[in-house]
Simulated assay, not measured.
Amino acid sequence: MEAESRLQAPFEQVAEKIAEEIRSGTYALGEKLPNQRDMAERYDVAIATLQKALGLLRDRGWVNSRAPIGTFVAASIPDSGEPLPSLPELSATVKDLQAEVASLRKSVDDLMAGRD
């Protein structure tokens, strides 16, 4: 895991730590998380880094935000026990999807050209 964490951006590392704490019960399902300033101190990161980590967790279904109340652990967490994907993994996936979309677009264009 140590080598893996060096490949992750700081916000990804924090998101993984929070997800692990949710898995372990440190933060209970439905529980309100501490305020962002306290969490940033706890994980020794800037508030902006913590906000990106919480955004990633929100996108993955681990937490929910209720403005202006705060951020809460989701009522149920994702089934996967796998770590969150790293930025390089997500980047590679996006590139693959872009190539697939370009290929599909060309196929559609070729089909449409044949109809004219």
Rank of each mutant, 00 (worst) to 15 (best):
K106G: 01
R60F: 03
D79S: 06
V101I: 15
Q36C: 04
E89H: 04
A75L: 07
Y27Q: 09
L111N: 11
A19I: 05
F11I: 01
G25H: 07
R23Y: 06
E21R: 13
E82D: 13
R23M: 02
L104M: 09
V108K: 11
E16T: 11
T49H: 06
A53M: 07
P83Y: 15
L84T: 10
L54G: 05
N35K: 03
V73C: 02
D110K: 06
D116G: 14
R66K: 11
T71A: 04
K106F: 00
K52W: 13
A75G: 03
R115W: 14
A15H: 07
D116I: 08
A67K: 13
P34C: 07
G70Y: 06
I47D: 06
K106P: 00
Q51D: 12
S24F: 08
R105M: 00
S24Q: 14
R66P: 03
P83T: 15
V63M: 09
A99Q: 13
Q98A: 14
R6D: 05
A75K: 10
T71S: 06
P78I: 04
L50H: 08
I77Q: 02
R42V: 01
L84V: 06
R6W: 05
F11M: 04
E21G: 11
E82K: 12
V108D: 01
A28V: 09
S24G: 11
D79M: 02
Q8I: 00
E20A: 10
G25R: 03
Q13L: 01
A74D: 02
S76D: 10
S103V: 12
K32R: 15
A3M: 12
N64F: 09
R105Y: 01
L111R: 11
R42Q: 08
E12G: 10
P88A: 04
D96P: 00
G30K: 13
S76Y: 04
S65G: 03
K32F: 04
S91I: 13
D116S: 09
A46W: 00
S76W: 03
R42F: 01
D38S: 10
L84I: 12
R105K: 03
E31V: 10
V14P: 01
A92S: 08
E82I: 04
L84P: 05
I18W: 09
P68H: 10
L87N: 12
E16L: 10
A40S: 02
Q98S: 12
S107Q: 15
E12V: 03
A74I: 01
P34L: 14
S80Q: 08
A40E: 02
N64D: 13
Y27P: 08
G61A: 03
L56M: 12
E41T: 11
P68D: 14
A9S: 13
L57Q: 12
A28Y: 07
L29P: 05
L87E: 15
A92D: 06
M1F: 05
S80D: 14
P34H: 14
R66W: 04
E31R: 11
L87V: 13
A67R: 14
E21H: 13
E21S: 10
E100M: 09
I22L: 04
L97F: 15
